[in-house]
Structures are given as C-alpha cells and as structure tokens.
Amino acid sequence: MSVKLIAVDMDGTFLNDNKEYNRARFAELYAQMKQQGIRFVVASGNQYYQLISFFPDIAHEISFVAENGGWVVSEGEDLFNGELTQQQFNTVIGHLLTLPHVYIIACGKHHGYTLRHYDDAFISMARAYYHRLELVDNFANLKDVFFKFALNLPDNLLDDTMSSLAGLFKGIMIPVTSGHGSIDLIIPGVHKANGLRILQEKWGIDNSEVLAFGDGGNDIEMLRQAKYGFAMANAPEKIKQIASYQTGHCNDQSVLDVIENVLKKEPPFNE
C-alpha cells in the first residue's frame, strides 16, 4: 500500500513558531505529490479563510478540513458543514458567558464572532487566526452556521475547565485542547478524522493509505485513524503515545522531511 493522502495540522506542525513554512521547498514537493497522485489536505482548527491564505497558488486544487472538521472544502467545493441548532448554541454560550476568565469566539461559516469589550491584545491575537472576525456587543441574534467555539483562558485553568465543560455539554459539544491556553468546543463526531473520512470516501482512499501529522489534542482522532500517524517532537507526551510514529520539531521542516521520504518510498513507506 502506498500513501495516497497526506494531511497536515498547521500550528505547531506544518508551520514553525513564526507561523511560516519553506514555500519553495514545499512547492517542489507538492509538484511531485501531484505527479504521484497523492492528495494534500490541510486539517486544522483554524478558520478556512485563514488557511487558504497560506496556500494562495493552490488553494483551489487542494482540500481543507477547517474548524477541526466543522467545515470540509475540496477544490473550492463545500462537502460538509457541521451545524449547531439555535437551542444548542444558546445553551453553550449561556454557560460560557458565566466564566469570567474565558474569552469566546463563536465560529461560524461566514465569520468568527467575539465580543467588542474584550481587551485589545486578545482581539489582535484572534485576528491572526480569524481573517473574518466580527466584533459584536453580544452573541444574540447572530445569523450564521455555527460549528465550533474557540476559547482562550489562562493555562492554569485549562485542565479544570476542560473537565467541567466535558460534563456540562455532554452530547452537545466536546472540549479538545488546541494549543497553549486554548480549548475548542467541537460537535461530537465532527473532528478532523471525520473530515478526512469524508474526503477518503470521495476518493476511495483507505486508512492504510493515509499519512497524518499533528501535535495537539484536536489531532488525536486523525492520528489514530491514519495508518501513518506522526506526532511532532514538540507535541505533548500523551500525543506522542497515541501516534504510531514521531518526527522532529515543527521548527526543523520535519513534515517536509517525512513527505520527501514518502516520495522517495523510504521506510516505512516502502511496503
């Protein structure tokens, strides 16, 4: 079995700590991937509009599992949208607003929405990840398709908040970590692995033909589902333990190194 699909998380994986990647080297590898019939998929918790900005020349011909699987786009075509009901949205937002240390972004298909009164530092950070960000006075009467909430909070409150939210929102949303001081609330079953499954069904690709890279809690299902699940050296220990393989640090172009090995049919990709 050869690799037919390569899926990359972005922050802490494909991107280095400066939110950059070696574009010239990737362009060469991508040309070879196309020649060998290998699909390239960006699988990230980030907003679709932010993700396409990293691939201006090829966004129209690759696929995106954006918003942690909430929105799947292939070659510019919408394949899937998760969607909360209005009642579910109100239930979740009603509780989140009682948590004083939590900044909230409601992630919709057309925009991310956050509160105007939040401090400037948070809003500036949010704009880096949400190229379409609306500042609102409250979360009432927003007209959009909502599939995720992104939460920002102090690191020392992360574990306790994760535990309490998991219990409170059981059956509606599941909390996953997406980096330092951040939690994504995702719809149950609507994760990156589900997004990849949708694409795999479209293309007739088996899990044994999938290579995935990740470094965070929102990558767990994807790393387990893919035969070649690679955790980054900078990933937490629990992510390394569930992944079948490991590679180097995100600052060392390690994803590109592994892709090069795939193209050259080097171990473990020479079976």
Rank of each mutant, 00 (worst) to 15 (best):
N156T: 14
T161V: 15
L158D: 15
F146G: 00
F149W: 06
L142W: 12
A140R: 06
F146D: 02
D155C: 07
E134C: 02
K148P: 04
S124D: 14
K143V: 14
H110K: 04
R127S: 11
A121P: 00
L153D: 09
M125W: 12
H110D: 05
F149N: 00
H111R: 09
R132L: 13
L153P: 10
L142M: 12
S124T: 10
N138Y: 06
D159P: 11
G112V: 01
L135K: 01
L115T: 07
V136W: 01
H110E: 06
F139C: 03
H111C: 12
D137P: 00
D160Y: 14
A140Q: 11
L157K: 13
F139G: 00
D159M: 15
D137Q: 10
L135G: 01
L142Y: 09
D159V: 15
F147R: 01
F122C: 04
A121F: 05
F149P: 01
K109Y: 04
R127K: 12
D144M: 08
Y113M: 00
E134G: 00
D120Y: 01
L115V: 09
H131K: 14
R127N: 09
A140H: 05
H117A: 11
K148N: 10
F139R: 04
G112E: 02
L158I: 15
L135S: 00
V136F: 01
L142D: 10
R132V: 11
D144K: 12
Y113K: 01
N156R: 13
G112T: 03
L157G: 06
A150H: 09
K109I: 01
V136D: 04
Y118G: 01
V136S: 01
N141D: 12
